[in-house]
Design a protein around this nucleic acid. Structure first.
Lengths: 198, 198
DNA sequence: ATAATTTTGCTAACAGTGTTAGGAAAAAGA
DNA sequence: TCTTTTTCCTAACACTGTTAGCAAAATTAT
């Protein structure tokens, strides 16, 4: 009897519809404006049906997040295959990583827990400037001492800032998902290597 | 007549109480569980009073975020002053930056828009492993080709990951607050420099 | 001191959120 | 055909941010 199978298939369809609706809604309006009720309306079912497929909203987002990781991995795998030279491979990997992030910003934000509603976009220029001045000052002094190219100061600062913030935010948001190794000692090593290379 | 001044002072007190209550509540339970009603209860006023001091919830968070930047800048300034050698200064700056982030995680999260409720902590190990395998593979191959120290592969991978994610998330969340310069071209430069130093 | 006016701060509501209890209708099996 | 199971909805609960409208208190003017 194929009845049970048809039912299972239908159930699977509803589940897929939930994820698909959540995805496209997030892509259009961002995660903040995604609600269970809107999903229910989109899939033309009532709200409790959603809870038959997912324990709660977080479970839906978790699933989509995992889908994001799978998609990213696929892109990275494709990129790696484009060359046999490891240097080219690494460049292609970084390239694919960047492209994935900015072609699927909603996915990326979900995957790394980015996106508290209120970060005051456009209203923090002075704050960031004050911070960059401090860092660039020290970097320029080191460059001068080493007689390296002073033009690089700004670029070097941005690289250092990125690595600091990246490391911190990965450890802060994903501590329980990553290997130990990533910690303060690692940051010290990175900073030392950075200085050595100025 | 000091009446007007007293009133102004009282009003300022309420405003400060709002910010203080919001801060300590966030530190205890995180930003997600902070609500206007809870703030109102904490300062022993009714809800609409809060809206006489702040346009909306976002304005409160924005203010606290700015306070965070000021605090961070203060710590960085102190760190810089501890030495006259620029290399020591830069190390101290990075150190202070890290410490600020992990001593005030709520602040840091607010400042960089970290912290969507549902990032599925602890449930993404396999996903991250798949990603790291790809990157470490390429890195190890380059190291082998260059006959560098193979022990460094893991550390190098973490550094590259950090800088990629840091750069992306800064650009993604704070594009309108930072100087241009930070873009894909910059990432390419960073990756090239990284490869050169393997 | 009394009356008018402003300021202050409240209650109560609106529209939205995630989540769940309980029951009606439809489908399947006996 | 009757019983049982599955499916799915309405309605509610306890929250959320936000605001309209009103009562009481404080200030100012008469």
């Amino acid at each position: 009897m194929g009845i049970a199978e048809r039912k299972l298939r239908q159930k699977e369809n509803v589940r897929a519809a939930i994820l698909s609706a959540a995805c496209s809604m997030a892509q259009e309006e961002g995660w903040q404006s995604l609600s269970i009720r809107k999903i229910a309306e989109a899939i033309e079912y009532s709200v409790p049906v959603i809870y038959e497929h997912f324990e709660n909203k977080e479970a839906i987002l978790l699933e989509i997040s995992k889908e994001g990781f799978r998609e990213l991995e696929k892109k990275l795998e494709q990129a790696r295959k484009r060359s046999t030279d490891p240097e080219e491979q690494l460049k292609a990997l970084a390239d694919a990583y960047w492209n994935f992030a900015f072609r699927n910003p909603e996915f990326y934000q979900l995957m790394y827990g980015l996106g508290i509603p209120c970060c005051g976009a456009g209203k923090m220029k002075t704050e960031f400037t004050a911070f960059s001045d401090l860092m660039i000052g020290a970097i320029k002094a080191i460059i001068k001492k080493k007689k390296s190219n002073p033009e690089d100061a700004c670029f070097k600062y941005q690289a250092l800032w990125s690595v600091l913030h990246g490391l911190i935010s990965i450890v802060m948001m994903r501590k329980s998902d990553i290997a130990d190794g990533m910690n303060k000692k690692m940051m010290d090593d990175v900073v030392n290597a950075f200085i050595k290379n100025l």
